[in-house]
């Protein structure tokens, strides 16, 4: 009950901020930016794998969104609408840039720390040993291996995996953001998970 009322109040507050931004209130626009900047930046970073590009793309996303905020009619959530702009900008950027300049996953291997992280990761993912996923995700080397594998996935698979498994969006929201059918979302997610698993197994074997 308390959660529900907090959610309603947050939604009302967001509606108010959107309306004020539509009237040209830059202060309200600033509050909307603060509300979503971390999630948007994080998502873009996971897709494009470069912090500088991600910062630039996040800025461009907000600028575009706020310039066109009068077009936002509330048919979807503001978050979905914003992410639609951000993800499309990022995908276009990736296409222009050409193939992602991902390093070989093996390139950074060889140090004692990465070997240890690699072993822990393999033990965890291949269900050979009990492990703490939260602790593993905090491990810099293990995280690097996962993110680099993610970066080697095809763009369309990487995007759905980021939106679903990292960002936690529903199939419907992903379909709206990418403007694709629900069935396509499901099949892409299946392929993306399997693809990532193959990549990680190949590295960690």
């Amino acid at each position: 009950m308390k959660d529900s009322s907090a959610f309603q109040s947050k939604t009302l507050e967001e509606e108010l901020l959107i309306k004020q931004s539509q009237r040209g209130d830059l202060e309200a626009a600033g509050l909307l930016i603060v509300r979503y900047q971390d999630r948007l930046y994080n998502t873009i970073l996971k897709i494009c794998s470069n912090p500088d590009d991600a910062a630039e793309l996040a800025q461009e996303t907000f600028v575009k969104a706020l310039e066109k905020i009068t077009d936002f009619k509330g048919k979807s959530s503001f978050y979905t609408w914003l992410f639609r702009i951000g993800v499309n900008l990022t995908l276009n950027f990736c296409k222009r840039r050409g193939r992602l300049s991902m390093h070989s996953i093996d390139a950074s291997m060889g140090t004692e720390e990465t070997d240890r992280a690699s072993a822990r990761l393999a033990g965890y993912l291949m269900c050979r040993e009990k492990a703490d996923p939260a602790g593993l995700a905090q491990d810099k080397e293990a995280r690097e291996i996962v993110l680099k594998a993610l970066g080697r996935l095809e763009e369309e698979q990487r995007v759905v995996l980021v939106l679903r498994d990292i960002e936690g969006l529903s199939y419907q929201e992903i379909a709206e953001i990418l403007d694709i059918e629900l069935g396509t979302v499901k099949s892409r997610i299946s392929r993306a998970r399997a693809g990532l698993r193959d990549l990680l197994e190949a590295v960690l074997a």
């Binding site: 930046y41 910062a55 800025q59 907000f62 965890y124 996923p133 995700a137 995280r143 990680l200």
Partner: peptide
């Protein structure tokens, strides 16, 4: 299941300062 769990635990990167 473990792979999904691990992805879900990846830390959220903070947006750079001054973005707003």
């Amino acid at each position: 299941f473990r792979q999904k769990e691990l992805l879900g635990f990846l830390p959220i990167e903070k947006a750079p300062n001054g973005l707003k």
